[in-house]
Nucleic acid binder design. Structure first.
Lengths: 91, 91
DNA sequence: TTTGAATATTTGAATGTTTCGATGTTTTAT
DNA sequence: ATAAAACATCGAAACATTCAAATATTCAAA
């Protein structure tokens, strides 16, 4: 994982709303529907859509269409890689 | 570690220059002098100072005066706590 | 105690991010 | 077909970040 990627993931993580989104995955068997995220945050639908996009663009979330719904899944692999890079910083 | 803190640390990490700074600590026995960082990055001195401040404000770096020099030390504890929070996201 | 080296702060311009309202697209149900 | 639901995109306002130039501070040495 190169520094550009680390920067991108860090940027995706640098917002309290997006952290809150990620934390929900633990509570909901690793998958979340877009509508659930809308209920979760006190933001308009376009704003939530924007935050989800940031997380998807950083590959922290994977999205999957299910009819007219959108299902998000946490990308554990990318999270693991990111954590590994941070661990590398330690001597 | 609360979400505001995670946000702040993530923000500190969301810049390629700052990631490059942190990576240098591994190569230089965990401490870096301000002047070394200036040599390292292709930025003016005030910009480097600004980036270092972001890292210190996020508690990722600890600073210590040594005469008129400033020594920065990686704060392993905060890095560990941050990594622990990220690990918590995984189910 | 003045000088100079090392670092910090301020300022302002350019750029990026967050948010919302309005509108568009896709899909399901009637 | 039409309407409604779910989500995305656009446009603009508000706010934050980045960077460099200028200036200030702090400290050691002369």
């Amino acid at each position: 994982m190169d520094n550009k990627k680390i920067e991108k993931i860090s940027k995706a993580l640098s917002d309290a709303n997006r952290i809150a989104i990620l934390q929900q995955f633990k509570k909901r068997k690793d998958c979340l529907y877009c509508a659930e995220v809308n209920d979760l945050l006190d933001l308009t639908q376009p704003s939530v859509s924007h935050h989800l996009k940031q997380l998807v663009d950083a590959d922290l979330l994977l999205s999957q269409k299910e009819g007219r719904n959108l299902k998000y899944v946490l990308n554990q692999q990318v999270l693991n890689d990111y954590i590994a890079c941070l661990n590398e910083l330690k001597s």
